[in-house]
Amino acid sequence: MFILTRIFPALLGLFLPLLAPAQVMNDPASQKLVLTILDNIYNLEFSEADGLIKQLQVRYPHHPVGPVLRATQIELQHIPLSDNKAASAQFAQAVDQGMQLARRMLDKNEKDPEAVFFMLTCHSYLASLYNNQGESLKAVGESKKAYDFIRDGFKLVDKNSDFYFTTGLYNYYVERYPIEHPIVKPIMFFFADGNMAKGLQQMDVAAQRGLFMRTVANYYLAHIQLKYESNPAKAVAYSNYLIDKFPANPLFTMIYAEALLLSGRYSEARPYVQRLKQMPGKLVPLAVSTFSGLLAEMADKKDKEAAEFYEAALRLPVNVTYTKEYQAFAYAGLARIASRARDRKKADMYYKKVLAIAQYKSLIREARAY
């Protein structure tokens, strides 16, 4: 089932003032505050974000913006969230609070674009949480609820360019997901048809022109270009925006370094691999070991050193959502090294492991071609 994962808030500047019935569609002060909070969150400046979120909730106690931003902060502060029960509970509580407040807005106006997006965000957040916790039935349930609000968003792209992201994401994945998971094809007739090329174009609009969705649109497009489109050069372009604006974010550093490595731009990638070594987080060590292996193998032509890095990577814990593909990279690297050593049996063994876990089209093609 199609799951929207890690969708960050869009339309966060469209606030509902406490003493006025009309929405403030262009409130520069409010927009600036929310953008500052998001910038703090993306750059892991959590103490700064925390204080500003409290200010926002005092100003707008009946609006979902505060709780949804709080949920966003909790998720990024405790990546991978599914590994932390206490943080997961706090996240779910914040999402539930945001959902209740958004539902009250819909009760007043069922076409409120702001409320539509917050409901979409909340259901998507819960779908992601349940999916990462292995609770697939709950994840599917939340995804179905999110779908209704995604459809409402189709009609709102002309009102705000940030809706191009959710619409484009749907158009791409509703076609891509059944290709990768044929088992779901019988139930896909419940969903409106998509268009992958159009979806990429729409997400690109959000990446270039979106106000609140620009960051997440660039991240998703970089990921899609690496995983499905096998176009690391485009991934470099999208992730370059992320690394320039949020240098302290390890996720953004990881995807930028990966895109450079897969583009063959090894000298440019090396300093970012070095930067990763100084960054915190459970996800970082596996990325560092894998990327170091790629540099040793591809740039330095030192197979023995590369093999040591790849083997070290395979001894590290894997997170299915964020780092499992790096494990596939390590197996592929060991397969190439074995092949160069004319050990076909070992190369076959490693490539079989690649095929068992890889999702990147480029890795799958490499393994099948051997």
Score class of each variant (00 low, 15 high):
Arg275Ala: 02
Pro182Met: 06
Pro271Ser: 03
Ala269Leu: 07
Tyr331Thr: 04
Lys353Pro: 07
Pro250Arg: 05
Asn40Ser: 14
Phe252Gln: 07
Asp112Gly: 08
Ala269Ser: 11
Gln327Arg: 13
Leu355Ile: 01
Arg344Asn: 10
Ala341Tyr: 08
Ala358Ile: 02
Val95Gly: 10
Leu314Cys: 02
Phe154Ala: 04
Thr321Ala: 12
Tyr42Trp: 13
Gln208Glu: 15
Ala307Ser: 14
Ala332Ile: 08
Gln93Ala: 14
Phe2Ala: 07
Met254Lys: 07
Tyr326His: 07
Leu286Thr: 13
Tyr42Gln: 11
Val174Cys: 02
Val140Gln: 05
Phe329Gln: 09
Pro182Ser: 03
Glu114Gly: 10
Phe46Thr: 09
Val116Gly: 01
His123Asp: 14
Leu76Ala: 01
Pro280Asn: 08
Gly264Glu: 01
Tyr241Leu: 00
Ser128Gly: 14
Thr253Trp: 00
Arg151Ala: 07
Ala29Lys: 09
Leu101Gln: 14
Gln97Lys: 15
Arg70Asn: 09
Asn84Ala: 03
Asn43Trp: 02
Lys361Asp: 12
Pro64Trp: 04
Ser128Cys: 14
Thr167His: 07
Ala287Phe: 12
Ile183Thr: 13
Leu260Val: 05
Glu308Met: 10
Leu101Phe: 02
Asp83Glu: 13
Ile183Phe: 07
Asn132Cys: 10
Ala222Tyr: 05
Asp96Val: 04
Met105Leu: 15
Phe46Pro: 12
Thr253Ile: 06
Ile255Arg: 05
Glu110His: 11
Tyr173Val: 06
Phe246Thr: 08
Met298Gly: 00
Leu52Gln: 15
Ile187Val: 13
Lys302Cys: 02
Ala369Ser: 15
Tyr147Leu: 11
Ala299Cys: 00
Val34Arg: 02
Ser82Gln: 14
Ala222Gln: 03
His123Met: 13
Asp204Glu: 14
Leu69Ala: 05
Glu135Asp: 11
Leu363Arg: 03
Ile183Leu: 10
Ala233Tyr: 00
Pro280His: 01
Val288His: 01
Phe46Asp: 09
Lys277Tyr: 04
His78Lys: 10
Tyr125Arg: 11
Lys304Ala: 13
Leu35Gly: 11
Pro280Ala: 04
Lys155Ser: 13
Ala127Asn: 11
Ala87Leu: 13
Ser362Thr: 08
Pro247Cys: 02
Pro182Gly: 08
Val65Met: 08
Glu297Thr: 07
Ala306Pro: 00
Ala335Asp: 06
Ser88Pro: 08
Gln100Val: 12
Tyr322Cys: 04
Ala207Cys: 08
Phe2Ile: 15
Gly98Met: 07
Ile179Asn: 04
Lys361Val: 15
Gln359Arg: 12
Arg70Ala: 10
Cys122Ala: 15
Ser339Leu: 14
Ser161His: 08
Arg336Tyr: 10
Phe8Val: 12
Gln97Trp: 02
Val184His: 00
Glu135Gly: 01
Ala367Gln: 09
Asp244Ser: 05
Asp303Met: 05
Glu110Gln: 10
Lys54Phe: 06
Pro61Phe: 09
